[in-house]
């Protein structure tokens, strides 16, 4: 009997692995957009937007947790069918994948111990997440600053609060909710202007799909418009932020 049960279980496992219409790559280490709960589930703004878009498109979706620096390869290797991970739409990335229209757009900002100023930055160490628009921006505009590259944004926060880096450069909302508003962020604040330079920062965060998959891409773009219209987007937005992060 036992081998038969085993075989049945295998079949049901295989079944659940391929049951979803779409596999969505998410990160799970980028609060409040995407974070992993104590029980191991992935939650956050990105995840709720993903679920709303899938429901709107009438597809069942499965979230696949993927490291940030392997997330585009994972899409290309068909480990998932779309990336919903606060990925900015940039020309550099468009050479490799396609994007839906944006689903939010927030500026980038420096953060450090209170009292730091932009003019102090020369010769200091700044932490950024590896393979992000923020790395490109720092390399392009602040060549006199030493960069430290982190696998996740959370690790950069840890080292900022420990004093291993003098400042971090990251998305303003991610920094605000993921760090500055937390206990670890006491005594730290933003400094410098809001940065939103299309050449580096793109035109907001979009949903990444493989090149040539026009139908899927358009379906996502359309669904974004629909949930903006029905108010679903605003409901999710209000759960996380006190202003509309969709941007102008």
């Amino acid at each position: 009997m036992k081998p038969i049960y085993g075989a049945l279980m295998l079949v049901s496992f295989a079944g659940s692995a391929i049951a979803a219409d779409l596999n969505i790559c998410v990160e799970g280490a980028y609060p409040p957009f995407s974070y992993t709960t104590d029980s191991g589930a992935v939650e956050g703004f990105d995840i709720e937007i993903a679920n709303a878009l899938c429901a709107e498109m009438g597809k069942s979706c499965e979230m696949v947790k993927t490291d940030w620096d392997g997330i585009i390869p994972a899409l290309l290797e068909r480990k998932c069918d779309a990336i919903i991970a606060s990925m900015s739409i940039t020309d550099e990335r468009k050479k490799v994948i396609d994007f839906s229209t944006k689903y939010y757009n927030t500026p980038a900002k420096f953060a450090a111990k209170e009292g730091m100023e932009l003019s102090d930055l020369e010769g200091k160490t700044v932490g950024v997440q590896r393979g992000t628009i923020h790395q490109d921006f720092m390399e392009g505009e602040f060549s006199g600053v030493e960069l430290k590259l982190y696998g996740t944004q959370d690790e950069a926060y840890l080292d900022l609060s420990a004093g291993r880096v003098d400042a971090i450069m990251a998305d303003s909302i991610a920094t605000l909710d993921g760090f500055l508003k937390t206990d670890a962020g006491a005594g730290f604040s933003f400094f410098g202007p809001n940065y939103s330079i299309p050449q580096y920062h793109g035109v907001g965060a979009g949903i990444g799909v493989r090149q040539g998959e026009e139908d899927l891409r358009n379906a996502f773009s359309h669904a974004i418009g629909v949930i903006r219209g029905t108010g679903q987007y605003q409901t999710i937005n209000e759960k996380y932020f006190d202003f509309d992060i969709f941007g102008g």
């Binding site: 392997g70 290309l76 490799v96 932490g127 590896r130 590259l149 696998g151 080292d159």
Partner: peptide, 22 residues
């Protein structure tokens, strides 16, 4: 390489991240 040191694997990861390679 996970604590920000650019060793051999760190260089490999940076290359992958920069050009979106697997």
């Amino acid at each position: 390489s996970i604590i920000t040191l650019q060793d051999i694997l760190g260089a490999g990861r940076t290359l992958n991240a920069r050009y979106y390679l697997a």
